[in-house]
Amino acid sequence: MTVAPAPPFPVLELIDVVKEYRGDPPVLALAGINVQVHQGELVAIVGPSGSGKSTLLHVMGTLERPTAGELRIAGEDTSTMSDKQLSGLRSRRLGFVFQQFFLLDGQSVLDNVANGLLYRGGRMAERRRLAQQAIERVGLAHRAGHRPNQLSGGEQQRTAIARALAGRPALVMADEPTGNLDSATGASILDLLQELHREGTTIVVITHDHDVAAAMDRRIEIRDGRIIGDTPTAW
């Protein structure tokens, strides 16, 4: 798969983003972040715990609004969007992968993956068809009818990745995707992310693990709410 031609289109753009939590004393979680993530990039945001990387992921994912600054996703300014519009943006543009997988035990793997498309509307049969494709992409076709609690940890995370991919989002964000897995399974998940990246998916991985970060093309280091290093992608 070829990389998009220069200048690359910024999928995600943070301009002077500040996030402050009210309290006594107030906590400055993000102290002016400027980042652009381009289409097709595989980015690691790495930092120790308490560095603000989780807050950064939440702000990037529109799960939390910044106190100040601007967040653009696929060129759209999110600061004036309503809850409904932001939710719509998440359902169409963003895919999330969490450390704890967050699969619903009451549903099959196929339906869990189809949940990634639920809030876009559309017909159930069509959502299942797209979900089936995503399941095949992560190599779980033989498990589509199983319940999540019948799967291994690695298979559960693959299911969660398929759910994030099902809607072909502009950006997939993964929060410590290997954090709950043993190293061999974790490595296979990283391989999968790299493979998806080669197929053109834009991925941002948040991690405290430097080995995970090393597997990514670009590493953004964050500490105390500030970016202290950015190893750019060699295009």
Partner: peptide, 16 residues
């Protein structure tokens, strides 16, 4: 709670 958080991340509005 985690299901609610997940659904919000998947694009559910407060109303949903």
């Amino acid at each position: 709670r985690s299901e609610i958080g997940l659904r919000r991340a998947l694009g559910a509005t407060r109303r949903h």
